[in-house]
Design a binder for these strands. Structure first.
Lengths: 336, 336
DNA sequence: CTGTTAGCGCCTTCAA
DNA sequence: TTGAAGGCGCTAACAG
């Protein structure tokens, strides 16, 4: 606990706490001489105002919360990086919470945050069914900005990437590179984010007159091991020559499975994944990735939250879409 | 802002605020009947206690701070994951700050945290020269636990990995696999963490009667581009057949440089790096990594901080060393 | 078992 | 230009 408070400061200076407070806040009704004295003494004594007292008094916390499914995920850690930078510029503090994809945990975090602990929330939804009503209640009490993992049925400001277009383009790319049977590794299907990616895949197939074979869509399982088994089985049974993975976490087991099955990527199977794994393309040049501007999403989302704080945002339901980058790789070249 | 406070709750129930407060805190001096009534009403009205009021009153925040150089770094994001999980179990909140390797920013964060905003700090040091005196002052006012990036000259509880041993073993591994000229990509050299890794490298060379050629140590530059140029130049001039990289951020440009130079990894150059890149070994099987238990370090560090809170920690200067894992790869096999 | 009172540190009236 | 006083919401000490 910081020991030195405004009263002691005032005492040292033979001033009242009120005067010191005003001086520190650079009030116009304090002589510049007094201000200088106060500032000097504050610095000398290493005075830091107690944030809880100010917050209690002023009903604001200079703190924002970020709720994400996982921190140790390339996309989210980059987004948090962007958020932290913006917050720091404005002398705001950033609280971090991870839901591990559980809506129950998500809800409990949100409820706790209603206490006034934070001035606003940035959230990327857990991929379970969501309680729209609950979100409506929250949004009424606290500014909320959604990013990346969003849901159309929940009203609010949203920052996403061009999920539909990038999935569509990825499939187009696979087709142009000779794929005849393109599978889809499905995830996030409870969210708009996942639905749009899937729709992009489906529409690209349709526009190229590919058969609409429901068997080519593989839904993710409960955990990594299960995903691995599912994908391996999927590849054996369906024998796709191209795969679009809707999340990075499914592309990885797909690699493992190919290795196990002695399938060469990309010679036997071309794999594209939504991914923000730094240097993934370098480590294995056979990897084509849909690279989302994760950092920029964080910056944008945080920026909008601050605009809301400053009453400079007037579109409670706008969705802002940033463009992803399809990083293509040569078909066969590899390092090793 | 949450609208409903303890007074309104009390009013609804025809009780005093004090009674309600006690009931909510499950005090033994409240009848179970009253408790039930209070709890029910609190739930009904969605009451959340104002944390700033409690914190101001009780002089504690139920919040910890985590200060790291970068969030979007595989090691740190995993560590934060571990920290968040431990904090969540205890209903603590986690504030995140990144220093971008700047000691000035680090110091400014620490100063701001002296205000009582947090009950304790977990920190992984920025790699610049550090102000020991300043840290001493901080530690006197606030519990601090250091993790991974530590400095011997700063007193405090520290959680690290076996930097010396793992570097030593890595070099031994390179030698056993036929390397004759082993380079070292140096970083973190202002910290004990970096010094120990370097010493492990040096001692392994010495114990194997390798010449102690200072030219084989390459110090990192200011940014990625510079590192890339430096490493490329280093490989051309020194022609190492093995390299140990002290951080992941240097291993990556090393890959790029090899590609540019048409050198095959690991046939022409065997590369080992300290790294926590998920699946790095899979993406390129030529990569041998020193895998630090990042998540566990986070869990351990947070656990100790909570022990300090509970006065169940009595070793103000203990260093706890967790073991890294040298993940070896076959010399020549590759996926693609 | 429950109520009254006071104060955590800060900031903003209001008064001088 | 400065000081005194009160209150943000909560809880511990003290009464009853």
């Amino acid at each position: 606990m910081g020991e030195i408070n405004i009263k002691k400061l005032a005492c040292e200076l033979n001033l009242s706490a009120a005067t010191v407070s005003r001086a520190l806040r650079d009030s116009h009704e304090i002589s510049s001489e007094t201000k200088a004295r106060v500032l000097e003494m504050a610095k000398k004594l290493n005075y830091e105002p107690n944030p809880f007292a100010s917050n209690l008094r002023g009903q604001k916390s200079k703190t924002i919360a970020v709720i994400v499914p996982e921190i140790a995920n390339n996309f989210f850690s980059l987004a948090i990086n962007g958020i932290e930078e913006v917050a720091r510029e404005r002398d705001y503090h950033v609280l971090i919470y991870q839901t591990h994809e559980s809506s129950a945990i998500e809800t409990s975090f949100l409820n706790r945050l209603l206490s006034g602990r934070v001035d606003g929330v940035l959230i990327s939804l857990a991929c379970e069914n969501v309680d729209k009503e609950h979100f409506k209640k929250i949004s009424n009490q606290l500014p909320v900005v959604f990013f990346d993992r969003v849901h159309d049925d929940i009203e609010g400001v949203k920052i996403t990437t061009d999920d539909y277009e990038s999935a569509y383009n990825a499939v187009q790319h696979l087709i142009e590179n000779g794929c005849k049977k393109i599978g889809y590794l499905l995830a996030l299907n409870a969210l708009s984010t996942g639905k749009k990616r899937l729709q992009g895949y489906l529409d690209a197939l349709k526009d190229n007159n590919f058969p609409d074979d429901g068997n080519l869509i593989m839904k993710n399982g409960a955990n990594n091991d299960e995903n691995y088994a599912l994908i391996k089985n999927f590849i054996v049974e369906q024998k796709p020559d191209g795969i679009l993975s809707s999340i990075e976490e499914l592309a990885m087991p797909c690699y493992y499975a190919c290795k196990e099955l002695n399938l060469s990527i990309p010679a036997d199977l071309k794999l594209i994944s939504f991914s923000n794994l730094a240097h993934a393309q370098l480590l294995n040049p056979s990897l084509t990735t849909i690279n989302q501007p994760a950092f920029e999403i964080g910056v944008e989302a945080a920026g909008i939250l601050f605009k809301i704080f400053n009453k400079r945002w007037y579109e409670p339901n706008q969705t802002i879409i940033l463009k992803s980058n399809l990083i293509k790789r040569e078909s066969t070249r590899a390092i090793a």
